[in-house]
Write a protein that binds this DNA or RNA. Structure first.
Lengths: 214, 214
DNA sequence: TTGCCTAACTTAACCCCGTTAGCTTTCGGA
DNA sequence: TCCGAAAGCTAACGGGGTTAAGTTAGGCAA
């Protein structure tokens, strides 16, 4: 039941000259709210967002190239807190190894707490991903990945790890991502204790890298 | 360019009495062909499949509950070869540990060779997944997962591993899945040598489990 | 042989979607 | 005061999944 019967006309007052950018913020806010409340990208249609903002669908295109552009912009903004979250979690320990583990655990937890955002940013096929989110550009811009590399470098300099920081970071990323995405995609699977699983999944490779370097 | 101008009428001759099931096969075949040739689920629309088969869209619903039901059925069939592929790869070594590694490597490779099918089966959100593919049912029915557990059990019995076969299997699955899904979702990332990455990603946890048990 | 029942479809439509061309309104500066 | 551009809107196109209701044809009973 959407009860859009009388096709309620747009209610938002037109912005002043030069204040057109305000609509952009409102659109992103409405889209973010829709995405969170429904927990489903499918629900975030151009039309639904326009309705929520009180504007007509074509107005969205004044600020976003297309639907994916909007969706990814919303997720990118949401994930600005992502890096902060990881940094704070990893700072709870002075030990580079333990800190790395805490970072990984925070990664998985953040993903599980924001499954739809995570899915969009990390699990969307390239064909549906706006250009500026594809390839190296996006990853490199993501502070979180840079910080992971630095965390690995600290382990290397401390003598705990040995090898190429980028390669090791990619490995660790894939481990954390594997569990995160599996838990997101198959939540109804009878998983054993998830916290324990996360713990083991992340500590195992870390300890392996540690022993390898000796 | 779809040049469907004259709205070409269905060409498929009506099936005989009791031979209605033949249409089901034809639909799956057409859908599979579309999925493979385009490499995109989005291209596999009910209408496109109906066109390819030479039938009208509603006819699809005589054999499939909805679009997702069809898509998943296609992927499930395709993945029947999956288990065989893993079994054959893992049989190349007598050593349980090496065999386990070979199995994992085959897993990743199969995923990379069939990215769209892999994405659908393992990366689709539950809300879009037909019931019979959700939860324990699907995984348990998947011979591949059972065989993984058995492979892990062989490692345990051989004294190489220690722990719960199910838990260890889930860990190993998540490792293999992590790399597979990341490579599928971010193919434009400047990955270092992929074969080497797969090798390291899989050997690392295996060797860690091995050392852990001593 | 006829006639009917039902399997195997089709027709036509509904409502949703993303997107675009082109029109209108309103504001602020010359 | 006027006019140009900013900030929207109207209307439409083509595509999608899905459904209610109609039609056709093949096999079986009489």
């Amino acid at each position: 039941m959407k009860s859009r019967l009388p096709a309620s006309p747009p209610r938002r007052p037109r912005a002043r000259r030069g204040e057109g950018e305000k609509l952009r913020d409102d659109i992103m806010e409405a889209a973010e709210e829709l995405l969170i409340s429904t927990g489903s990208v499918e629900a975030v249609s151009i039309r639904a967002v326009a309705d929520a903002v009180g504007v007509t669908p074509p107005s969205i295109y004044m600020h976003f190239a297309d639907k994916n552009d909007l969706i990814f912009a919303v997720c990118e903004k949401h994930f600005q807190k992502f890096d902060e979250f990881l940094e704070e979690a990893s700072s709870a320990s002075e030990d580079p190894l333990e800190s790395l583990f805490l970072r990984g655990r925070a990664y998985v937890r953040f993903g599980l707490q924001n499954p739809e955002h995570y899915r969009i940013l990390f699990m969307t096929k390239p064909a549906l991903t706006p250009e500026r989110f594809q390839d190296e550009g996006m990853i490199a811009r993501m502070a979180a990945f840079q910080h992971l590399i630095e965390a690995v470098e600290r382990c290397i300099k401390g003598g705990a790890f040995d090898g190429d920081p980028l390669e090791l970071s990619l490995l660790l990323w894939s481990y954390a991502h594997g569990l995160t995405s599996l838990l997101i995609s198959k939540p109804d699977f009878p998983w054993p204790d998830i916290d324990r699983l996360i713990d083991r999944a992340l500590r195992l490779p870390i300890s392996a890298l540690q022993k390898e370097s000796t």
